[in-house]
Design a protein around this nucleic acid. Structure first.
Length: 440
RNA sequence: CGGGGCGUAGCGCAGCCUGGUAGCGCAUCUGUUUUGGGAACAGAGGGUCGCAAGUUCGAAUCUUGCCGCCCCGACCA
């Protein structure tokens, strides 16, 4: 993409109503625009990151054996009345009536609807287990939206639902998602720690939150320090036994504020005790027959008797992750994107558009990076050098290649690693090679 | 939902206390000169001061109501 043809409305000054880093930078970097409290337009740069995160989440779900589908945002109140949640959910749920005065709602979650899908089509225990998911916009009319996309009212969420014949089998599904989440967050370039969590209004008795540590986190969390640096499982057989992965993590103390036990925490060696602020980016629940029982979602077991399906649900806040990743990865100059989710792989800065050699070399580098699949952004705008560098720092692409007359006299361009700040001079060919290899 | 704050040009703000025809910086547009880390000069455009009612000869300014947004807390992907 050429900057001169892109749509990147940057803000030089920080909007006064943005107080946390991710909110400030998302506005300043032209990633989004607020429409009303907790509701945002995703501008091209932000949309690109959102879609990259979504795709990684999708790929890891598919690896774990979950099957993608898509349920609507607007739901009929009927299903919610069956489970009793229409009354239980409270004002956080946005209720709508259509032209015929039918009660509708903008879905805050989809347990009721997926359970209806399941009971409509699944008859036999032989069809189990099943894990179904979708990535869809949700709406929760939060009492207090804040921190940009970190607590928006409209948000994009991946929610998976598992169906099993027995609790024992359901726990296996839980382990699959637990494992998939560890890999997902690792690929996104963040360190998310699974923590024992309160099940909240969704109910159930087995639940973990995946939390990234950041000063701006909304809640206090406590864990063993080793959990933060623990390597992800990587390639595993999702049909095999995954309990060791779960047990390895849960053997060490980790809990959110609601589940915190100070006595247990105190047993951790002092240098391994970690109490910090955390951002919840994923939450998994096992809740048994909470929805399947009232909705009569049953399958025939091997004895020909109907059995209520045992369910779990597994959410990842995709839009929240955009903010969460920035909270975990930024500096005073702007965002530092992990390579896997960066909106563009590298920025090519033509420091002097109109200068024959600078035009030619920056264009060549750009073209070759396109072919190499790096998806570069070419800054071909006229303007001062300082503006160019600070703009690239702000939007946080992993690499910057600066091409200007001064360096070209020596046959050199400057490659900067955004994360480390390290700069090296090299030939244009070497720069292309260096950046292409980083994304190989 | 309790407490606090804010709404004046695209963005950031001053003006309000003490009423008198709306200002600064940045951005934008034109021209000239610049150019290796947020350039300089000259000129130009851009506002029903959140909305409504009231007080007044006169309201951005005082009064009342409403709307919107932010922050802290309690609750949540």
């Amino acid at each position: 993409m050429r900057l001169s043809r892109y749509f990147l409305p940057l803000l030089k000054e920080t909007p006064s109503d943005a107080t946390v880093a991710s909110h400030r930078y998302m506005l300043r970097a032209g990633m989004m625009k607020q429409n009303s409290a907790g509701i945002y337009t995703w501008l091209p740069l932000g949309h690109k990151v959102l879609k990259k995160i979504e795709q990684i989440v999708r790929e890891e779900q598919n690896k774990a054996g979950a099957i993608e589908m898509l349920m609507p945002t607007i739901q009929s109140a009927d299903l919610w009345k069956e489970t009793g949640r229409f009354d239980a959910y409270g004002p956080e749920m946005l209720r709508i009536t259509d032209r015929h005065d039918r009660e509708m709602l903008y879905g805050p979650t989809n347990e009721d609807m997926i359970t209806d899908v399941f009971r409509s089509f699944v008859r036999s225990y032989k069809d189990l287990p099943k894990m179904l998911y979708h990535i869809q916009w949700k709406f929760r009319d939060e009492r207090r939206p804040r921190f940009g996309v970190m607590r928006g009212r409209e948000f994009l969420m991946k929610d998976t639902y598992s169906f099993d014949l027995t609790e024992e089998d359901a726990v296996k599904s839980y382990y699959k998602m637990f494992t998939a989440y560890l890999n997902t967050f690792a690929r996104l370039g963040i360190k998310a720690v699974p923590m024992k969590a309160d099940t909240g209004p969704i109910g159930g008795d087995l639940s973990h939150e995946f939390v990234i540590l950041a000063e701006s986190g909304e809640s206090e969390v406590f864990c063993h320090r080793d959990l933060v640096e623990m390597a992800p499982p990587g390639d595993v057989d999702f049909d095999g036994d995954l309990s060791h992965i779960f047990n390895q993590r849960t053997a060490l103390y980790a809990a959110t504020e609601e589940m915190h036990n100070a006595d247990e925490f105190a047993k951790i060696p002092a240098d391994k005790q970690l109490s910090a602020r955390g951002i919840e980016v994923g939450h998994i629940f096992y809740f048994g027959d909470k929805y399947s029982a009232p909705m009569k979602a049953t399958v025939m077991d091997s004895d020909g008797k109907p059995q209520v399906a045992m369910m779990g649900s597994y959410g990842i806040g995709v839009s929240r992750l955009v903010g969460g990743i920035i909270e975990a990865s930024h500096d005073e100059n702007g965002i530092i994107w992990p390579k896997s989710v960066a909106p563009f792989g590298a920025g090519v800065l033509n420091l002097k558009p109109g200068h024959e050699e600078a035009d030619k070399v920056s264009e060549q580098i750009y073209q070759k990076l396109v072919v190499a699949g790096v998806d570069p952004l070419l800054d071909d705008e006229k303007g001062s050098i300082g503006v160019k560098f600070s703009r690239m720092d702000l939007i946080g692409l992993p690499y910057q290649i600066a091409v200007g007359p001064r360096g070209l006299k020596e046959g050199q361009v400057e490659v900067k690693d955004r994360a480390t700040g390290e700069k090296q001079n090299m030939t244009p060919e070497a720069a292309i090679d260096f950046v292409a290899k980083a994304f190989a």
